[in-house]
Amino acid sequence: MAYCVHCGVRLDPSEKYCPLCGVPVLDPLQPYQADAKKPYADRHDPVIVRKNRRLTAGMISIILIFPALLCLAIDFSVSRQIDWSLYPTGALLVLWTGLVPPFLWVRPSFRRIFLPFALTGLAYVYLISYLQLNGDWFLPLALPVYLLTAIPTGVITIVFQRRKLSLFYLPAFIMISAGLLSLAIDLLIRSYLEQALRPGWSLFVLLPCIAVALVLVLLARRHALREAVARRLHV
């Protein structure tokens, strides 16, 4: 058995480096032997967190379908036709497409979860504009606002999933996106109302967002603080 030249402890023959300090075995008379038996096993025990996903999906479905059916039944029994109950039913359907697919897919991905949710949401907005008699606001206002919101959300999700940005720059990115989004929505509303195209209320959102984002970037650049946050918030 060799001794660690740094720590002074005797090393098990299976150790190539001292496990305490990392210094390699430096004993010409007793060099490290790769075939020495290790004291502990090599097999890694995978950590599986099992969840009953189908059951969760079923429970959510029941909770959402029941009020929708109730609304439809009440609406129909009172007025012998279906009108107002389409609003809550549609909203519950949007909620369902948002909540349930993550539990149904074995490998949930961006396309499988976000796209159906975004599309049903858009369809629901169209449904509202269709049910209202003066529904001419869908194309000029609702569609662009919806797309403007959906696109940054999608981009942020992709950035988050693919780990393009470190977790510390991500909040800064989200803040900047939120500020720019409010600016764009502000301008859109002004153009719809045929007002002069200059930013109004959105400046009050944009400027604090930029300030917070800058603070976040500064914090993210401090290594010690990042370590402290990572240590306390690691999952």
């Binding site: 402890v9 005797r10 496990p19 300090c21 990392g22 290790k38 502990y40």
Partner: peptide, 28 residues
């Protein structure tokens, strides 16, 4: 980090004990 383990065993060596060390050799 293995600072405390090293310090502990080094102290035992300084106290005059002969310590044989082994580990599960995880990748650090």
């Amino acid at each position: 980090e293995t600072d405390i383990q090293r310090a502990f065993f080094q102290h035992l060596v300084e106290l005059g004990l002969d310590v044989t060390v082994m580990s599960n050799q995880i990748e650090r």
